[in-house]
Amino acid sequence: MTATQGWLVLVALSVGSTLLAWSGSTGAVAAVAILALAWVKAQIVLNVYLGLSQVPAWSRGFAFVLGLFMLGAMGLAVAAGAV
């Protein structure tokens, strides 16, 4: 993916998540969906903008920690909806 392609996807996903929030959809599913979009965006910034795709070992390490973070955030978002 080139920087320009990465940028286009990032803009599309940002608009997408804002629309999702605008649509007024709430609850666990919407929260997980919004966070999933953020997850993809973060991966694009790491691999394309920051160039980690050239260093696969580091890319995997960052992806792993980011994954833990996103799963934690999703778990807490669902928990907040359940309380």
Partner: peptide
């Protein structure tokens, strides 16, 4: 993100 793209370019 647009600013980031310009920086990458």
């Amino acid at each position: 993100v647009t600013s980031g793209w310009l920086a990458a370019l």
